[in-house]
Amino acid sequence: MPISDLVTSGENLFSAISGDQVSDKVKSNISDGTAIVALGLSILQRNTTFNVDGVVTGATQTLNGLTATITAVKTPVASSAVTHAIAGGA
């Protein structure tokens, strides 16, 4: 189960929003929490009929998409590119 990918995506989203990196202390706490979440999800997977791996993968992709969107919003573009796009240029 790709829990570490989900955690990394969450850390990347935090960094994109805040502009800061996750501190070592927080990373340590996240690591502890990840172990608990992984255990809980493995128990859930045994007791449910839906695709838990698919849910985790989808959540990871969603976080990655949010990070890409926020990064794009924060990235300035040259004014000529903006004018060209508004004018309907290719």
Results as ranks from 00 to 15, higher is better:
residue 1 M to W: 02
residue 1 M to Y: 04
residue 2 P to E: 10
residue 2 P to M: 02
residue 3 I to M: 01
residue 3 I to E: 02
residue 4 S to L: 06
residue 4 S to Y: 12
residue 4 S to M: 05
residue 5 D to E: 05
residue 5 D to T: 02
residue 5 D to G: 02
residue 6 L to W: 15
residue 6 L to Q: 05
residue 6 L to Y: 15
residue 7 V to K: 00
residue 8 T to E: 05
residue 8 T to M: 03
residue 8 T to P: 06
residue 9 S to H: 11
residue 9 S to W: 09
residue 10 G to M: 09
residue 10 G to W: 10
residue 11 E to K: 14
residue 11 E to A: 03
residue 11 E to H: 07
residue 12 N to A: 02
residue 13 L to K: 13
residue 13 L to E: 08
residue 14 F to S: 12
residue 14 F to P: 12
residue 14 F to H: 15
residue 14 F to V: 11
residue 14 F to E: 07
residue 15 S to Y: 07
residue 16 A to N: 09
residue 16 A to Q: 11
residue 17 I to A: 05
residue 18 S to H: 12
residue 18 S to W: 02
residue 18 S to E: 02
residue 19 G to W: 09
residue 19 G to K: 06
residue 20 D to R: 08
residue 20 D to Q: 10
residue 21 Q to A: 12
residue 21 Q to V: 07
residue 21 Q to F: 03
residue 21 Q to I: 03
residue 21 Q to M: 10
residue 21 Q to C: 00
residue 22 V to W: 02
residue 22 V to T: 05
residue 23 S to A: 09
residue 23 S to G: 10
residue 23 S to M: 04
residue 25 K to D: 14
residue 25 K to C: 03
residue 26 V to Q: 09
residue 26 V to S: 10
residue 27 K to R: 07
residue 27 K to G: 00
residue 27 K to D: 01
residue 28 S to R: 08
residue 28 S to K: 10
residue 28 S to F: 04
residue 29 N to Y: 07
residue 29 N to R: 10
residue 29 N to C: 04
residue 29 N to V: 05
residue 30 I to P: 07
residue 31 S to G: 00
residue 31 S to N: 00
residue 31 S to I: 00
residue 31 S to T: 01
residue 31 S to W: 01
residue 33 G to M: 01
residue 33 G to Q: 04
residue 33 G to E: 02
residue 35 A to L: 03
residue 36 I to H: 09
residue 36 I to T: 14
residue 37 V to P: 00
residue 38 A to R: 09
residue 38 A to L: 03
residue 39 L to T: 14
residue 39 L to A: 06
residue 40 G to H: 13
residue 40 G to P: 06
residue 40 G to D: 12
residue 40 G to F: 13
residue 41 L to S: 08
residue 42 S to W: 05
residue 42 S to T: 14
residue 42 S to R: 15
residue 43 I to F: 06
residue 43 I to T: 10
residue 43 I to H: 08
residue 44 L to S: 00
residue 44 L to C: 01
residue 45 Q to I: 03
residue 45 Q to Y: 01
residue 46 R to Q: 15
residue 46 R to Y: 05
residue 46 R to M: 10
residue 47 N to P: 09
residue 47 N to H: 13
residue 47 N to E: 13
residue 53 D to E: 11
residue 54 G to A: 09
residue 55 V to P: 00
residue 57 T to V: 02
residue 57 T to C: 05
residue 61 Q to G: 13
residue 62 T to G: 11
residue 64 N to P: 06
residue 64 N to I: 00
residue 64 N to S: 08
residue 65 G to V: 04
residue 65 G to D: 12
residue 65 G to R: 08
residue 66 L to V: 03
residue 67 T to C: 07
residue 67 T to W: 09
residue 67 T to G: 06
residue 68 A to C: 06
residue 68 A to Q: 14
residue 70 I to N: 07
residue 71 T to C: 01
residue 71 T to A: 01
residue 73 V to G: 07
residue 73 V to A: 11
residue 73 V to K: 04
residue 74 K to W: 12
residue 75 T to C: 12
residue 75 T to M: 11
residue 77 V to Q: 15
residue 78 A to H: 11
residue 78 A to F: 12
residue 79 S to Y: 14
residue 80 S to I: 06
residue 81 A to D: 14
residue 82 V to M: 13
residue 84 H to I: 03
residue 84 H to G: 10
residue 86 I to V: 15
residue 87 A to C: 08
residue 87 A to M: 15
residue 87 A to L: 15
residue 88 G to Q: 11
residue 88 G to N: 11
residue 89 G to C: 14
residue 90 A to L: 14
